[in-house]
Nucleic acid binder design. Structure first.
Lengths: 183, 183
DNA sequence: TGGGTCATGTAACCTGTTACATGATTAG
DNA sequence: CTAATCATGTAACAGGTTACATGACCCA
């Protein structure tokens, strides 16, 4: 149920089109939630059917018309209900395809493991740079409906940074271990 | 496609029943992959249909009969194919429901944020202990088909430990930041 | 003239979750 | 006596992915 609630949360910062919501996910939430464009549009129409959102079509010259969504009272209530619900069980419901593959990589020759971990290191480094030099969450501070919201955005981004730093250190250390075995 | 391949990977260590595969997921892979019992049974029969697995029913006195699955040649080929495939895109396809909720928690009073982060800290501490004092991956070393496999298991577990340690440090720091705002 | 951005979607499919059903044995 | 473990599943649903479709405008 998380994408729907993520969309509610963003719409609480102001009315938006599906296209703009998609950009928010790509630009600033991607490090903890990858959403497909098609899914965003689908969820939005489901949510409108549930009465959580209302929409207005805004005609534009030069560009395709926009369908702007707004939170309804029921939508805001649902957002608050979700935020207040204990989600302990869901919070640790992880699925990490990278670790799943790595777990079995001993079946292949050690060079494969070194390659996989080195590439992971690179990906972490790139992601860390993107999160730090941003474009991303810090710049969105201006859109925060309250200063408290911006504070949580920073805490979330901080998790991302620490996560990538940890990933880099772990990958380097692990590559080291595997290289020793080849010698 | 990861659960199917995870099951292939485990079955490469030896024949097993759905029930035993379920226990392996619960006991030692849970920190990177939570699988439902019902899904495991369903995927196993799909995989048998694909020709990746074969099964034998082993009658037991005193206990319900067992259905023991084995990798077929086609199944092992699929496992190798999957391991050799570049999965860069999938590796960073994250979905973190905890961060999704936290991101919007500024809407609620700060006490809620402190409670949420403190509980997260506790969950990390519990998970870290479980991973360290284990029961889990280290003890499974004996089941590794090759020593290389056990090495990757340890590298994966090390990721888990570092992840939880990072989570604890981050949660403590963040609670500190939020507490300052209340005073 | 070719690729990028703006803008919105549908259809089919795959993956994951929840709730339920059954029934024997064993340990506290 | 009651809860846990052993053991296997089905049905319905929710959530996520992939592939495709359309079409105008703008910049190099």
């Amino acid at each position: 149920m998380s994408l729907k609630h993520g969309l509610l949360g963003i719409l609480d910062c102001g009315d938006m089109t599906g296209y703009e919501l998609d950009r928010v996910f790509r630009d600033s939430l991607a490090f903890f939630w990858h959403a497909q464009t098609s899914q965003i549009y689908r969820e939005l129409s489901v949510m409108e059917g549930l009465g959580w959102l209302s929409s207005t079509i805004v005609p534009q010259a030069d560009r395709p018309n926009k369908k702007v969504y707004s939170l309804t009272a029921a939508g805001r209530e649902e957002l608050l209900r979700w935020l207040r619900t204990d989600q302990t069980a869901d919070d640790f419901n992880t699925k990490n395809p990278f670790l799943m593959r790595l777990f079995f990589l001993g079946i292949l020759p050690p060079e494969e493991g070194i390659r996989t971990l080195s590439r992971y290191r690179e990906l972490c480094a790139t992601a860390l740079e993107a999160l730090s030099s941003e474009d991303s969450i810090e710049e969105y501070r201006q859109f925060a409906p309250t200063p408290a919201c911006a504070r949580y955005w920073a805490i979330t981004a901080d998790f991302g940074k620490k996560f990538y730093e940890m990933g880099i250190a772990w990958a380097e250390e692990s590559v080291g271990k595997l290289e020793e075995l080849i010698k």
